[in-house]
Each structure stands twice: as structure tokens, then as C-alpha cells.
Computed example of a mutant assay.
Amino acid sequence: MKQKRLYILFLIVLAIFTLSFCYSYLTESAIDDPKNEILLRKIGHEVLISSNDKTSKVLPIKLISKDEFQISFENKFAFTPDSLINIVKNNISKSTFPKEYSVSVQKCSNDAIVYGFHIDADSSKNVIACVGRKMPLDCYVITLKFASKTNILFTKYSFFVILFLAVSLFFLIRFRNPKREKEVIIADDETNITIGKYSFYFQKNQLQFENEQISLTPKESKLLHILSKSPNEIIDRNTLQKEIWENEGVIVTRSLDMFISKLRKKLDRDSSINIVNIHGVGYKLEIKN
């Protein structure tokens, strides 16, 4: 039971750690990757080249939010939507950015959006309009807003982690100890001796406390069998030694004390049971009502 609880606790801690790691990873801004910042600057550079501007600078990339970035420029420029779409698509396809995003072009003077398009992971859902029309010379900023990978992927990872926990718990409960379950079934079919809250299976050298199986050595089993036949009665030490070691020819006095000590430990789950030493006489299996 204790092992089962520890295993469940381990699974819970593992799940929390995994989800935390995934969440931390998924909520990182893509701009944290230096290559992505370079790629955004490259998009700005190629937009200027397409408008025949080879001297103006692309200003530092601005992080508007976790998934939104802004490319601004030193000077005014003109552009055609066709070129802008191709430049952005070609560069984003080679990056680690999410493949679903929206692009908007705004005027510097009043933030009015003069052009925009949306690219979806499913190309059939792309929204692209007004191609072929050249936009006049003006001061523009280009904003790229990427679909948040947190909601979709974190939900996906959460599902698999929860599924893993559910499957693990199922197998833990269903197959936690097939051998033990088999032993319990077999023990239920055998004659047992009730000792307090224990069931004692003499032929199997086994004690059962609730669902716990406790193995006994043949001598421990024989000793407990003798004591259990006369509960709360003193059994002479010499009688116990003779019954247990009579076929071995040699009796070691301390052996009896050692086996009594081991039996006490195996019976300590029930406080109403005790093997009492009657000094100079023998032992008795004391069972309190």
C-alpha cells in the first residue's frame, strides 16, 4: 500500500514537472531565438530591396507582445503586396515561428492599416486580398502576429500527460501485484486459524493481515501453530524446543528466543496480540479480547 502511494505521488510530481516544463517552453517568445530576430530584419531588408531602396536601415525589431513583432524602417518606401507576401512566406517557412500568422502594414503617422493578410497552417484558409496594387511611398511599419502555440500545444501535451497518468494508474491498480492477489485467493480456500486480526495458514507458512501477506519460515510457522492451539496458556519451554527441533538431534537454547523475537515482529500489526515470556517457565500467546 505504501509503495502504491509513493508510486502515485511520483506520477503526480512527474506530471506537474512535465506540464511546467512544457508550459515554460511553449510560453517562451520566439524572439528569444537570435536567428528569428535576424530573420525578421531580413524580411525588412528584402522589402526595402524590392522597393529599390538599398541604403535605408531596418530599425531594431520591437516586441509588441509574446507573439507579436514589429518591423520599422529609417525612411519611407513603397511596396507591392505581391512582393511583401512572397518575402514573408519564404522567410517564415524556414524559421521556427508558428506557421499560422497575420501580417499588417500600418502608416507611421496614424497607425492606420493600409494592407494585411493572413496565412494559415491549412493553406486553404489563407486570407489574401488586393494583390497587384502598388502602395505609395510613405512611412510604414510591418507587424507580424503569430498564432499562440501555447493554447493548442499545451492542451495537446496536457492531454497526453493526463492520458499517461490514467493508463499508469489503471495498470497499477489492475496489475499491482498479481502474485499477491493469487496468493490471497488460494489462501481463502484453505483452512485458516484466526489469531486476533490475523489469518494463519499453517500449511503455507503464511500469515495474512488484511490484504498483506507475511511469509513465515517452517520453524516460525510450527512455533506459532503450537502457541495458537493453546491461546493465553503457558507452553513449557522444553516442550516447544522438543516439538520444533526433535528431528534435528541438537537443540540450541537461544534459537527458541530468536524465533520468538521474529514472530513478535510479524505479529506487531495487531496490538491485541503478544507473545509473553514467562521467565524460567516458557511462553504464551496472549490474545486480548
Rank of each mutant, 00 (worst) to 15 (best):
K197W: 05
G44V: 02
P178H: 01
I260T: 06
F97H: 00
N177I: 07
L144A: 00
S271H: 14
E46G: 01
L14W: 01
Y201N: 02
F200K: 05
L39H: 02
I85V: 15
V13T: 13
S65N: 10
E181K: 11
I173M: 12
E243T: 11
I235G: 01
S83Y: 03
K66S: 12
E212P: 09
G280F: 01
I92V: 12
Y157H: 05
T27L: 08
T18D: 05
D257M: 03
F146Q: 05
C130W: 12
I195P: 09
I152E: 13
I162G: 09
L224P: 02
I195E: 10
E246G: 02
N75E: 15
T191M: 12
N52M: 08
S109V: 14
S272M: 13
F171G: 07
V13P: 05
E74K: 07
I173N: 15
I273P: 04
L40K: 02
I278H: 13
L256C: 00
T217Y: 03
T150K: 10
C139K: 11
L39V: 04
N192K: 13
I92P: 00
D111W: 06
R5Q: 11
D236N: 12
N205S: 13
A30F: 07
F21R: 06
Q70A: 09
F97Y: 01
I193E: 13
I193D: 09
Y198P: 07
T80P: 04
V167E: 09
K125M: 14
C139L: 09
V167S: 09
K76M: 14
K149T: 10
N289E: 15
N52I: 03
S104E: 14
K179I: 15
S261P: 06
E190F: 10
F164P: 01
P231W: 02
A121H: 08
C108I: 15
